[in-house]
Simulated assay, not measured.
Amino acid sequence: MFLNDRFHDKGFRSAILNIVKSACTAMHGYNHVLCKGNDVVITDGDYGQVNKEPSVKTGITFNEVKSLLAEGSPETSLMTLPQYWKVYRECLELNDSVTLKGLRDSDHVELLDTLFYYCSSVKHGNQKQPTQQSILMARPSLIRPDDINMKTGLPDRLTSPDNYGDTELWRYWSPDREENVATRGSHLRHGPAMY
Rank of each mutant, 00 (worst) to 15 (best):
Gly29Asn: 04
Tyr84Pro: 00
Val87Lys: 07
Asn31His: 12
Asp39Phe: 11
Asn51Arg: 13
Val33Tyr: 11
Trp85Ser: 12
Val33Gly: 00
Glu75His: 04
Met27Phe: 06
Ile42Val: 15
Lys66Glu: 06
Ala70Lys: 10
Arg89Ala: 14
Trp85Arg: 05
Val50Gln: 06
Pro82Val: 11
Asn95Lys: 14
Val33Thr: 00
His32Ala: 10
Asn38Ile: 03
Leu94Thr: 04
Asn51Met: 10
Thr43Pro: 02
Val40Gly: 06
Tyr30Phe: 14
Ser73Trp: 00
Arg89Gly: 00
Cys91His: 02
Thr25Trp: 06
Lys52Ala: 14
Ala26Cys: 09
Leu34Gln: 13
Cys24Trp: 05
Val41Trp: 07
Tyr84Ser: 04
Val87Met: 07
Ala23Phe: 02
Asn31Met: 05
Thr76Ile: 00
Arg89Gln: 11
Met79Gln: 03
Met27Thr: 08
Phe62Gln: 07
Glu53Asn: 10
Asp96Ala: 13
Met79Pro: 01
Thr76Ala: 09
Trp85Ala: 10
Val50Glu: 14
Lys52Ser: 13
Val40Glu: 02
Val50Pro: 05
Thr43Tyr: 01
Tyr84Lys: 01
Val40Ser: 04
Asp44Met: 14
Ala70Leu: 06
Lys57His: 02
Trp85Asn: 08
Arg89Pro: 05
Ser77Asp: 11
Glu90Arg: 10
Thr43Cys: 12
Ala23His: 09
Asp44His: 08
Asp44Ala: 15
Asp44Ile: 06
Pro54Asp: 03
Leu34Phe: 05
Leu34Arg: 13
Asp39Arg: 11
Leu94Trp: 02
Pro54Tyr: 03
Leu68Gly: 04
Thr76His: 02
Lys86Val: 07
Asn95Gln: 11
Ala70Thr: 05
Gly72Val: 05
Ile60Lys: 11
Asn63Thr: 12
Lys36Pro: 00
Lys36Arg: 13
Cys91Met: 13
Val50Lys: 09
Thr76Phe: 06
Met27Trp: 03
Glu64Pro: 01
His28Val: 15
Tyr47Asp: 09
Glu71Asp: 03
Asp39Met: 15
Gly59Ala: 08
Arg89Ile: 04
Ile60Glu: 08
Phe62Leu: 07
Val65His: 04
